[in-house]
Simulated assay, not measured.
Amino acid sequence: MGHPDGQPVRRTQLNTELGGSSGARLARTVLDEVGLFLDDTVSTMRLWIERQSGLLPEGFRADVRAWLIVLLEGSARTKARSESTLYAYFGRVRPHLLAWSETRNQLREITENDVSQVLDALSGHQRAGTFTALRSLFQFAKRHRLIFADPTRRLSVGRAPRRVLQPMTDAKIAEVKRTAVTPEQRLVVALAAVYAMRASAIRHLTLGDIDLPSG
């Protein structure tokens, strides 16, 4: 490849020269083991972070970008989080950052009262999820000395209420039984009934309702 001795080899260069061949994978492994492999590609999530943080007001942009990158890649003190967590956390904090930006110029200006007002306007899972995301952001900012004080430190919203599964009504049960006409469908309905039907309805289920195939 005409590469200078002792200089790292970039992934993009390997991809150009060797493509996706097994030789390219072997070369990456060997180069990585001797400390000469440099991954200069940008992941889809990194592009998403750059795009989304770039749409925030200037005073919040860099701090939120750094927070999202640590969530994505982890650090010496924290584990990497899933992509779905990044989407959820950013989705929770974004509208409040935009609202705060009308009177605040940067994260360090956000007060405990600002966060309390946001949480007081929410309830249930939305309130708990928003608090978790905001706490993650401000704990990161405090740890990296981007803010003087964590405005979420003394706040608590408790646990989110549990989602209660409601039993099916008799009318719904009858409708499902009419719809499930094949033996396979009726078997699925019978298995699901343990979680969805009232105990009295389950007790009255008969093999005729299930219509299991013979043999």
Rank of each mutant, 00 (worst) to 15 (best):
D209A: 07
A121M: 11
D39I: 05
A190S: 08
L165H: 10
A180F: 00
A192L: 14
S22C: 01
W100N: 06
S123M: 06
T12R: 15
P161W: 05
S136Q: 05
A27M: 15
R108H: 10
P57T: 06
E112D: 07
A99Q: 15
P151A: 06
V188D: 08
P183L: 00
A160W: 05
A80L: 09
L107F: 10
A88F: 12
Q139W: 08
R135T: 03
R94L: 05
F138G: 09
I210V: 15
V93S: 11
P151V: 02
R135Q: 09
P151H: 06
V115I: 14
H125C: 09
D39M: 13
S156R: 15
R81Y: 08
P57M: 06
A160L: 10
T78Y: 08
R145F: 11
P213V: 01
T169N: 04
L146V: 13
K177N: 10
A62Y: 01
A24T: 01
R135F: 04
A190I: 02
R25C: 02
R154S: 12
D150V: 00
M45T: 15
W67H: 13
E102N: 10
G91W: 06
M1H: 07
G59M: 10
V9D: 01
R28I: 02
F60P: 14
P167H: 08
L137G: 05
R61G: 04
M168H: 12
F140W: 02
V42L: 15
K172D: 15
Q117I: 00
T16Y: 15
V157Y: 04
H96N: 09
D63Q: 07
Q52Y: 05
H204L: 13
I173M: 14
H204G: 03
L165G: 04
P8H: 12
R10P: 00
V64T: 12
W48M: 11
G59W: 07
R28P: 00
H125W: 02
R28G: 00
L31M: 11
R153G: 03
S82E: 14
T169A: 02
A76M: 09
D5T: 06
I147K: 01
E109G: 03
Q52N: 14
L38H: 13
L212K: 04
R198Y: 04
V42P: 10
D39C: 08
L86G: 11
R143A: 11
D63I: 02
R143T: 10
A99P: 07
H96Y: 14
R143I: 00
V164W: 03
L137Y: 09
V64Y: 02
R92S: 08
F131R: 13
G54N: 12
Q106C: 13
P161H: 08
T85D: 05
R65E: 15
G124K: 04
S53Q: 03
T29N: 10
V194E: 02
S200C: 05
Q106P: 09
